[in-house]
Write a protein that binds this DNA or RNA. Sequence first.
DNA 1: GGCCGCTCTGAAAACGGTAACAGCTGCTTT
DNA 2: AAAGCAGCTGTTACCGTTTTCAGAGCGGCC
Lengths: 335, 335
Amino acid sequence: MTIRDVAALAGVSTATISRVVNRSGYVSPKTRSAVEAVIRQHGYTASRSARGLSSGRTGLIAVTVPRIHPSYFSVIVAGVADALYEHDMRIVLCPTLHEHDREVSLLARLVHGTTDGGVLILPEESPSELRDLMTHGFSFVVIDPRTRIDARVPTVSAANAAGATQAMEHLLALGHRRIAAITGPSALMANKERTRGYNAALAAAGLTPDPELTFESEFDVQGGAIAASALFDLAERPTAIFAFNDQLAIGAMRVALARNLRVPEDLSIVGFDDTSESELLRPALTSVRQPLAEMGRMGVSLLMRLVENRRLEAVHIELATELVIRGSTGPPGPR
Amino acid sequence: MTIRDVAALAGVSTATISRVVNRSGYVSPKTRSAVEAVIRQHGYTASRSARGLSSGRTGLIAVTVPRIHPSYFSVIVAGVADALYEHDMRIVLCPTLHEHDREVSLLARLVHGTTDGGVLILPEESPSELRDLMTHGFSFVVIDPRTRIDARVPTVSAANAAGATQAMEHLLALGHRRIAAITGPSALMANKERTRGYNAALAAAGLTPDPELTFESEFDVQGGAIAASALFDLAERPTAIFAFNDQLAIGAMRVALARNLRVPEDLSIVGFDDTSESELLRPALTSVRQPLAEMGRMGVSLLMRLVENRRLEAVHIELATELVIRGSTGPPGPR
DNA sequence: GGCCGCTCTGAAAACGGTAACAGCTGCTTT
DNA sequence: AAAGCAGCTGTTACCGTTTTCAGAGCGGCC
């Protein structure tokens, strides 16, 4: 079933079919309904390849993501997919496995004639590579940028600094004064922001950050465990730990329980992300929720404007986080 | 950068460029390297749209999946994506949100001119709709079929019956005799198979299944909780529960702990899927691992043969499961 | 009555590749 | 010596759309 077949059956030209299908230009109501009848009856759908070749728009959006599986990413992708579906666009999914080369070569190929734009989630590209991409005329947005990038690239992220401050204010209000931070890799902008929020909250409470209490490690359970062990070995133990993601918090909680520290009586723990794991833990984890699906949706909404209007004033959106209080935090014990 | 630009720069015809890029036909080494130099230098990539239009192959594979987020699906998708990447194909991701109409209309549009084939994960289509799809010449494989479908459609699933038997043999070997089953929706083929494995294991141990001990519910935490409550209210409580997925097991464990039943001393629990949650629970959950990523990979491997050879003898693949024993199972208490 | 503008429609030229076909060279075979 | 064939390359038709352009019909206005 090609457009020509439909045209022949309806007794009109292919141009008219195209106009009917795309709701563009003038078509008399009579012709329109006749064509629509033929289309319905024979189940015609336009070939995306042909359309892409002819009009330059493929209806496909590339989505790069380090990995699909960690729920952090899959929830964002779900939000992106949802929003794109509403625009009748499809998503070309590209897991990069954190490999810079893979991502670059993928994008290079997608830019040209495959997709109309891209949503880059935590991309590996350097700021200059992203700038090149932009000057080549590729429309894209970045969700959760790894580093500070060209101001003209639209970005969407969570309010990381504010979220960290929320977590800290909760702990401070409970009476904690020695609050440790287990940060993820400091190269990530999100972590820099969270650190900023951590320090800001301490300062606001009139406390000076103790460098001993900040520990950087990999963003995984293992990293959390290592950091927690080190913190517990300090002469003066912290009474609370703010972990920069839930994985780290899980690791910390494991070590705490292994050392017979009761949570939250002896140690309060706050995570970040509020992944589904956090309410599974016992005690359930207090965590800063990022609006991940929303971030995906918002990215698409920016991208659509970019794709349609061609170019758009710089936009950097930060979506508010929310502190979800569960059983892992409480007032510090009497010591 | 079009193929014509490259041809002009290299001083050859477009046909030669095409041959170099696709490694087809004869090209002298000298010409080849000259062309490759131009391509590298100017960063040419063929337009997928044009290629798709001309050759009929787009290098895109549609992947339908009910939802992205539950890790059950995202792990399968990750396996699919990984395998497709190796074939230099991209994945067009279509979350159907369990909506039959959405899935049907998506596929209808993808079949024609957009993708070369499809991987359908737990599809909503009826067997007859799938048959139609096949007779229309669309190449696809089904992963984890919902029901028994046309024997000519290649399918990949886990060895559900055998997996259930593994779980049961473990419980039986520990000495359990009253073993309840919390099944998911019995419409799903996977659940029928697991029920078959459950009954087979009981029979092999010389026990007759007690209908009181089988409880069907929705595949979620809530469903597990409801089922477990009912089971605990029986005159003679089961000493072990085999839940047909981990969500159900989590629900059951919650209710057990709420009723002050100790796991595993008073009650053993086995799950199915071995999702990442299972080792987070306290006690950690004994569960039947499905090789999800492998299933995705295997699906692609079948599909590739289908796409290349056109048509393929019926293949139904069952991948072996593995029982992962953790802390939630132990010998029954003395009562 | 001539002109304008609006509505509607069709012819035809792209869009960027692929692949069938033909043509050329130089070597091997008969 | 003619024929055949492998290796290499170019010409060109075609894939299924969109879009530009031109033209036809028609009512309203000066």
